[in-house]
Write a protein that binds this DNA or RNA. Sequence first.
DNA 1: AGGTCTATGTTTAGACCTAAACATACAGGA
DNA 2: TCCTGTATGTTTAGGTCTAAACATAGACCT
Lengths: 187, 187
Amino acid sequence: MTEYPLDGTGAVPAAEIAAAWDRELPGVPTSSIGVITPLWRVAKALADERRRTLRRLGIDPATLDLLSTLRRAGEPWTLTTRELAERCLVTAGAISQRVARAEREGLVTRSPSTASRRAVSVMLTDRGHEVVRRAVRGLLAHEETLVANLAPGERRVLGELLEKLGEGVRGGGGRDVPLEPPARSRP
Amino acid sequence: MTEYPLDGTGAVPAAEIAAAWDRELPGVPTSSIGVITPLWRVAKALADERRRTLRRLGIDPATLDLLSTLRRAGEPWTLTTRELAERCLVTAGAISQRVARAEREGLVTRSPSTASRRAVSVMLTDRGHEVVRRAVRGLLAHEETLVANLAPGERRVLGELLEKLGEGVRGGGGRDVPLEPPARSRP
DNA sequence: AGGTCTATGTTTAGACCTAAACATACAGGA
DNA sequence: TCCTGTATGTTTAGGTCTAAACATAGACCT
């Protein structure tokens, strides 16, 4: 049997989740659920769609993120691994692995940077250019249809609210995680 | 050196990304970027925060998702693996692995369902109850502070727009991924 | 009864990520 | 010059997920 994560059918509405916690664990603050739950579901649905779309286009999301970051950088389509880690928002270790995979497939080359001997320059190959061009065109065309549900004004508002939420999250919110003394039995 | 994904500092603004594609690959539709890029960044920032918070609370996100889904189900805190897969939105294979790990740690038990011989019932243990109680309290308290940046009205609007976007995404958008014939050289 | 289709779980291979340990390369001061 | 601290990359261990192959168990039809 081929598996697939069940679509929305089985997803419990966020409001029900909040109500369930309020019932099962009275006193917990549940107001974040109405935002965070739908956000994660959309993010997952988008990630699933993107994975499927890119699969048809012959590439995986992590590799495309790498290649498109190089492509967007403009001539000479070269960045150090440090710059890549910053722009892709993943650890240097993850970049190291992504680059190793892409290099194996002939999509990028790795060479000591001219500027510093400890830096490594990653450059898009001709084959990498071709792959990223095809994939980005196909992907953006598809994702355009995914957001078509929202009117331009709604998209703008959504984008702005997400940016604002992001500031709060990256700020780390209040620095608290109220810890309780470990207990033994169920209340 | 301890690694960490760089915070927002290195993140290129979504508008710049769209402008870069418009310049580098003229003609591609870029209007989805203003929504999808901030959405993914917030989702990642939230996932990172949650991972760190739960680490302090002694549990990982996947296991808490499993335990809290059982806890929210109410008495007798038991679901089949199928129901778990539907509610957690991951494949049955992933649930199988999550349950195996949680069982190893004594947080749940696995037993043949009374209703059907092919189904498997997963039940929260007393230890599982205690762990989920502590973790959910700590997590929701923390996440409450993460969304504090948004006024109640903004949260409501954001939640609604996300739900609406979700419908479009799960619908799969238009069924198109315009494929081009593979080419050889860079344009 | 027998055959076929579907539902439910488990296992495995392959990707991917983070966190932490290493390994260098510099830079700046004593 | 030597030492120490910091910046840059790579490697490895452990965890997580999907996709696909298996293995049963029921259901339904003839």
